[in-house]
Design a protein around this nucleic acid. Structure first.
Ligand SMILES: NC(=O)c1ccc[n+]([C@@H]2O[C@H](COP(=O)([O-])OP(=O)(O)OC[C@H]3O[C@@H](n4cnc5c(N)ncnc54)[C@H](O)[C@@H]3O)[C@@H](O)[C@H]2O)c1
Ligand SMILES: NC(=O)c1ccc[n+]([C@@H]2O[C@H](COP(=O)([O-])OP(=O)(O)OC[C@H]3O[C@@H](n4cnc5c(N)ncnc54)[C@H](O)[C@@H]3O)[C@@H](O)[C@H]2O)c1
Lengths: 204, 204
DNA sequence: TTGTGCTTGTGCTCACAATCACAAAGTAAG
DNA sequence: CTTACTTTGTGATTGTGAGCACAAGCACAA
């Protein structure tokens, strides 16, 4: 828009703003100011305004933002408008938790396929999805699945990522504590849970 | 040390360095250079050197770092030297996955207690631990448990955090998508999984 | 139409973080 | 001892983001 570059940190905050906005929508509020939203989410109001201003003029001075409009716009920015078909690879402990979690729905994600390499798991149903053989990952393209969640052990993560890339995936959420090498056009976000816990004692 | 302030981002990276160092130790390597470690973890070598240099002189010029010494020093910095007794609150899908995960052990964490509010779960065993009633959280202090992992639904998270603070906890790893308000002396790290997934389509 | 009050949108400044590039300091060989 | 080579440790530079403080703009009342 009228800015050159959009900070990555702003993108990171948008899903949080969306969660806050959905809360206000639930309470029946029509409008919300940057201050009210900031109070709820514990952010700085100016930061919220600036983050949104990177993408357009969504508010009305002296009034605030219309909740439903801003929700729609935020979904637009994050490309959450249409449903996102997602596959999970690795139906272990963490994988099962993710499959059971309904919270991804509000962002428009649908986990439609589950893959594993363990013959004992293949064919079994987990949270309504049948576990498939990981060697069938190439079918993702045909099925219009464009995102992958990697919940395999670290040593298997890179080869799974390679297969996902071959299957035409555009984004990967990776839980394995391992850096994934992928083509530039594919975005990887890694959540290293143990790492986060590992820095907690430092602050005590 | 000879620097005024230690960047928070450096602290964040140390557990990752530790993971890399443990890998090199496993392979039997005695020494490692910042470049080799950087290659493995996909970091900038200068950044690794600088991060460590905030805490002391651990390397030998022209040679590199001794793997085992650096592991020990990193554990020291992160205060992972002695075992950290940890409690999990919320024995749901995510909680069960965390209890089953052995990977926290390498950082010295032991999950010794599990709490839930669901009468149907209290008394049951999960991964070798007996689920206790959440109203008994105050016993944590006596038991020397100083860290808490919150895996309850968002609406319950704040009251659980309050109880943890009352029980003398010094750090919380929070999985609920909700900002926790705690005294300054208590450190909270929140992992919002859905938020991370929510920004993935933006980059596609 | 003018004034008052409110909230947005943003220029500017400060703070923090990443990276570069090189002196310092070690090893090893002659 | 001197030279060549290696890798650390860090000053200096560049890049990125957070937050303040205020002008701009809208609503509403008189
Ligand atoms: N569970 C946790 O709380 C937790 C915490 C931190 C990190 N992690 C990370 O998340 C990942 C999954 O953890 P988990 O506890 O669910 O492990 P898990 O062992 O319970 O599950 C891993 C699953 O991946 C499957 N698998 C192995 N190789 C595969 C391959 N090549 N293709 C497809 N599937 C394959 C296994 O059959 C198994 O079902 C690991 O990388 C782990 O380090 C988990
Ligand atoms: N499962 C996932 O993949 C996932 C993904 C993203 C975020 N999360 C978040 O992690 C948290 C846990 O998710 P989950 O899937 O395990 O949910 P869950 O519903 O399976 O488990 C929640 C557990 O917390 C217990 N609980 C409720 N109130 C409590 C209280 N006051 N004190 C103690 N225990 C209480 C419940 O009895 C239940 O056992 C939620 O906040 C969720 O939003 C989970």
């Amino acid at each position: 828009m009228r800015y050159r570059k959009i900070p990555d940190e702003s993108i990171r905050r948008l899903p949080v703003y969306l969660r806050g906005l959905l809360y206000f929508a639930e309470t029946g509020a029509k409008g919300v100011s940057s201050e009210k939203l900031a109070d709820f989410l514990h952010f700085n109001p100016a930061q919220i305004r600036k983050d949104f201003s990177y993408f357009g003029y969504f508010g009305i001075r002296g009034v605030g933002y219309d909740v439903n409009t801003l929700i729609k716009q935020t979904r637009n920015i994050l490309k959450l408008g249409n449903k996102h078909k997602t596959a999970l690879i690795g139906a272990g402990n963490l994988g099962k938790a993710i499959l059971a979690y309904p919270g991804f729905g509000v962002y428009g994600f649908e986990i439609l396929a589950v893959f594993d390499s363990d013959q004992a798991k293949i064919g079994k149903k987990i949270s309504g999805r049948t576990v498939e053989d990981v060697s069938n990952l190439r079918t993702l393209k045909k099925r219009g699945i464009s995102l992958g969640i990697v919940a395999t052990p670290a040593p298997a993560a890179q080869q799974v990522a390679d297969a996902l890339v071959d299957a035409g995936i555009t984004g990967i959420l990776n839980f394995a504590p391992h850096h994934l090498i992928v083509p530039k056009k594919v975005k990887v976000i890694t959540i290293d849970i143990a790492m986060e816990l590992g820095r907690l004692p430092y602050y005590a």
